[in-house]
């Protein structure tokens, strides 16, 4: 379980030559009973792993689609504790790795050590924290490591080379390469420099490199995946779930991984 499961699952898919596809879903959007149901659906649709967002009142790295989904999830009574309990219930009936994406404040209030232990017990394999740069990571990293949970680092195009190298070398599970200079949400296209940035990271990283932010269709996904190991799609998946348009999710994942 944990880091080991995430890394071996991703490596196995990578060795088939297919791009990795990690969809993001907001936990509790559509109701708390939808958490496991949607995880199951995404697993069946061909996802490589699932990024499960924990709603936060003040998500500064997120654009409007994920902000709104977070507000709906909070209105449904979603908390970090409830999400961990839900995920734990279905622990043995899924194979797909689960990654939590949460801002630091809910974890701080939960308690770092308890959080890491409860993640392990719930079968959570990796954690992404968008507001923890390397300068602030020591305490939470130590707890995650003690419980064997992968601590997935984020790289940004604004990061100078020394920082990128350090981020690429410390990341566990995979490396999250933020592929726009901005918040989450659809973008018409990615810049030239995104491609060279992805190439550079792929060279430096020991773990798979996935591009995320701003990806909304299979063409974009494939063009970025050509320069790294795969993609993360957030706002678009959240949007399709909200509209009840599951067919489009299957198609987006399918068209990206079967090329």
């Amino acid at each position: 379980m944990g880091k080991h499961k995430l890394e071996s699952t991703l490596e196995k898919i990578k060795s088939t030559g297919k791009p990795l596809f990690i969809p993001y879903m907001m936990a509790g959007d559509g109701g708390i009973d939808q958490i496991n149901e949607r995880i199951h659906f995404l697993e069946e649709s061909g996802a490589s792993a699932i990024e499960l967002g924990i709603p936060f009142s003040d998500p500064v790295a997120d654009g409007p689609v994920i902000q709104d989904a977070g507000q709906r999830a909070l209105a449904n009574g979603t908390t970090l504790k409830i999400v961990l309990e839900e995920v734990r219930k279905q622990k043995d009936s899924r194979n797909i790795p689960i990654i939590l994406m949460t801002y630091i404040n809910p974890i701080w209030n939960y308690g770092y050590e308890q959080f890491a232990k409860d993640c392990d017990a719930a079968g959570v394999d990796g954690i992404i924290i968008p507001d923890i740069p390397m300068e602030e990571e020591v305490e939470i990293a130590a707890q995650l490591s003690a419980s064997g949970i992968a601590f997935i680092r984020l790289a940004a195009m604004t990061s100078p080379d020394e920082r990128l190298e350090k981020i690429a070398q410390t990341s566990e599970g995979f490396l999250y390469a933020v592929s726009v200079n901005g918040t989450t949400g659809e973008r018409a296209q990615h810049e030239e420099r995104t491609l060279s940035y992805l190439k550079k990271l792929t060279k430096q990283s020991k773990v798979p490199v996935l591009a995320g932010f701003g990806i909304s269709n299979p063409e974009q996904a494939k063009s970025l995946a050509a320069y790294c190991d795969g993609v993360i799609v957030g706002s678009k998946i959240v949007d399709f779930f909200h509209q009840g348009n599951r067919g489009e999710i299957e198609k987006l994942i399918g068209d990206t991984i079967h090329s």
């Binding site: 300068e135 195009m157 604004t158």
Partner: peptide
């Protein structure tokens, strides 16, 4: 040096903003 006042303060921002 880390921008702390005792335990308070610090830089809890996305990597994207760290260079700025």
């Amino acid at each position: 040096k880390l921008g702390k006042y005792g335990e308070f303060g610090g830089r809890y921002v996305p990597e994207l903003l760290m260079p700025a």
